[in-house]
Computed example of a mutant assay.
Amino acid sequence: MNRLRLRADKPRRALPPELVADGAAAAPTGSRRRNIVKRAATVVVVSGIAIAGVSAFTASSTGGAGIAFAAQGLAISSIPAVQAASATSSATSIYDLAAARSAQLAEAGDTISDSQQSAAADARSSALDGEAALITKEIDRLENLPKFIWPTAGTVSSPFGMRMHPILHYLRMHDGDDIGGKCGQPIYAAQSGVVVKAEMGYNGGSGNNVWIEHGKIDGIDVQSGYLHMEKYIVKVGEKLDQGDVVGYVGSTGMSTACHLHFSIKRNGVESDPMTYIGWNSEAKKKGNGHGE
């Protein structure tokens, strides 16, 4: 048998008729059949992937293409490459969602934290403002501690000192200032302090009376007394601010008419009230009020 050498630089020629056996061209050998089958299978797989891509691209606009492709019986989802791509896409989507949710929670936590810090700051600021107001009030009180306000409307009818007692009719020390007023008019705390005495009844002629402890003023313990009241509305241990109502003008105890007997004790000794209320304009006036 003649052997023909095929070279890249020479044109191919048809086999001579004598080399072609009867039926050789029409019937390939077993080896050639297997090669042909493999190549055909490869073409089918590649064609199937291409058809899947075209079907996915056109499915949104043409439902018929997807149906026609499905009718061909090609299970694209079962192809390993497609399954791997789908799994990767799902994993990426879940990861992205988890990351986004984590970011949202972190942002919400920061917002809550900022809100709590802001609320705490506002509360602290309010507390500090309240403390500052109290401190300012206390400073004002201490600066004005020696200045007592006038305890009730009216002028002094009988001042502190020796006098003829209107009921006993003999000279006797008058240990306070009688301030004339109408029955039932309010009596005010001349200075801030704590109620240390509140008694009803005759009480040795003092009638219904209240005493307020004001503490040390210029190193001296000072108390103020309110006698002959119709009634009082405070109790022992109660803290009062300057100007708080203590009770109402009356004529209880040893008294001839409605008035307030206002007293001051310095270190426990009865003293002239004008030491503390004398700066008021009312102290300069003369009146016709009634005393004890």
Rank of each mutant, 00 (worst) to 15 (best):
I233F: 00
V37S: 10
Q242L: 10
A119Y: 14
F148I: 05
K235C: 02
D110M: 13
L128Q: 09
H228G: 09
S60T: 12
E107C: 05
R101K: 11
D22C: 06
D272G: 04
R163T: 01
M162T: 00
A84S: 14
E107A: 14
S251R: 12
A52Y: 14
N209Y: 14
V196W: 12
D140C: 12
D272M: 06
T58L: 15
G291H: 04
L128G: 00
T275D: 10
G184D: 06
S157C: 06
L142F: 07
L15N: 09
E230N: 09
M229D: 13
L4S: 08
N208C: 13
S118Y: 15
S90P: 04
G205E: 02
V196T: 14
L240W: 09
E270P: 12
V269K: 06
G204F: 07
A103Q: 04
I217D: 05
G268L: 07
A257K: 03
V44D: 09
G64C: 08
I149N: 09
N35R: 13
Y226P: 02
P151V: 00
Q83I: 07
D175E: 12
G215F: 05
P80A: 03
Y202H: 14
S263M: 09
E199C: 11
G219P: 03
S125M: 04
T155C: 08
I233K: 02
A75H: 13
V45L: 13
H174E: 01
K265L: 14
K285S: 08
A21H: 13
N288I: 03
E238M: 15
V195L: 05
D218G: 15
S90Y: 13
F160M: 01
P16L: 04
A103E: 03
L105R: 14
G48I: 06
T152V: 03
Q242H: 08
V269F: 06
T62E: 14
G247K: 01
D140A: 14
K239R: 08
L171F: 00
E143P: 00
G48K: 03
I94G: 00
L6M: 03
L168W: 00
I36R: 15
H259G: 04
E230V: 02
T92Y: 03
N267V: 02
A27Q: 09
S281Q: 15
A75C: 05
V54T: 09
M164I: 00
Y276A: 01
P17M: 12
R34V: 09
A27C: 10
D96G: 14
V196Y: 11
